[in-house]
Simulated scan of single mutants.
Amino acid sequence: MYKLLIVEDEMNIANTLKNHLEKYNYDCNIVVDFERVLDVFQDFQPHLVIMDINLPAFDGYYWCRKIRQVSNCPIMILSARMSELDQVYGIENGADDFITKPFFMDVVLAKINGQIRRIYGEYAEDSQTRILTKGNTTLNLDTVRLSTPEHEVLLTIKELQLCSMLLEAFPNVVTRQQLLTVIWDEETFVEENTLTVNIVRLRKKLETIHSSLEISTIRGIGYQLTEKKL
């Protein structure tokens, strides 16, 4: 079942969307705390976000940018403000599509179905090259999710880059310098402790999904992804 996050402060609209979309087997969650949209997103791990622009505290463009820092999940803007400038600004902030208020439910459903098929289903491009698998663990580079047959977790962009490098090098060692050079812009100074922190987070997420993989520290060199010995 695909999960949809609805970020809309007009509760009658949010509930109408939820009630209608659930009839088509979508699992919908409505945000109620508009200062914690990113926290709700990371806890719920939706496959698609419906995002209003005029929101309390921070506007929808702000939350689009925040979500884009951690995920490539499709974002559909829901707004009465849909001039050409609004659409350009939405795209620049990470939106994938637009729903104009007032809207027809059939159009909303068609747009959602189209995004789901494009990203996760029959229309997904290069699906074979965008998925990395080792042991019981799969990394989907498009959805930014790390999963096993029973569990799934959303990664941040940094965790995604680290995980993909380690999987592609498996079972070889990746040096700290290689990770730092590829993941962070050379123009930006990053303390090596930042890499350590992200490795620790990735380790915890591998444990959370009961992965057969583990990250080993090779002292003085870097990190190695290996399968656990049973």
Rank of each mutant, 00 (worst) to 15 (best):
D39G: 05
L55E: 04
N93P: 11
I53P: 00
Y61G: 00
L55S: 07
L48S: 03
I77D: 01
G94H: 11
D59R: 10
Q42W: 05
S83H: 03
I91K: 10
L78G: 01
D39W: 07
A80K: 08
L38I: 13
L48W: 00
V37T: 08
A57H: 13
H47P: 04
F58V: 06
I91W: 07
I77E: 02
L48A: 02
H47F: 09
F44H: 13
L78Q: 01
Q42H: 06
E84C: 02
V88I: 12
Y61S: 08
K66P: 01
H47Y: 08
Q45T: 15
I75F: 01
D96F: 09
L85D: 14
I91H: 02
L85H: 10
A57L: 05
Y89F: 09
S83Q: 01
V88F: 02
L55M: 02
Q42S: 10
D52P: 00
C64P: 04
G90F: 14
D86M: 06
P46V: 10
F41G: 02
P56M: 02
F44M: 07
L78Y: 07
D39H: 12
L48R: 01
D96Y: 10
I77H: 07
D86G: 09
I91A: 03
P56F: 09
Q87N: 03
N72F: 15
A80W: 02
Y89W: 11
Q45F: 14
V37K: 06
I67Y: 09
F44N: 09
A57S: 04
L78A: 01
F44R: 11
Y89M: 09
D39F: 07
Y61R: 11
L85I: 14
S83I: 06
G90E: 07
G94L: 13
W63V: 00
Y61E: 07
I50W: 01
V70Q: 08
A80C: 00
A95N: 13
Y89E: 09
G90V: 11
I77W: 04
I50Q: 00
E92R: 14
P56Y: 08
E92C: 12
S83N: 04
Q42F: 07
C73A: 09
I67N: 08
G60Y: 03
P74H: 12
L78V: 13
Q45W: 05
G94A: 07
K66Q: 14
R65D: 09
W63E: 02
M82Y: 14
G90S: 11
L48N: 03
I53K: 05
A80P: 10
R81H: 15
A95G: 06
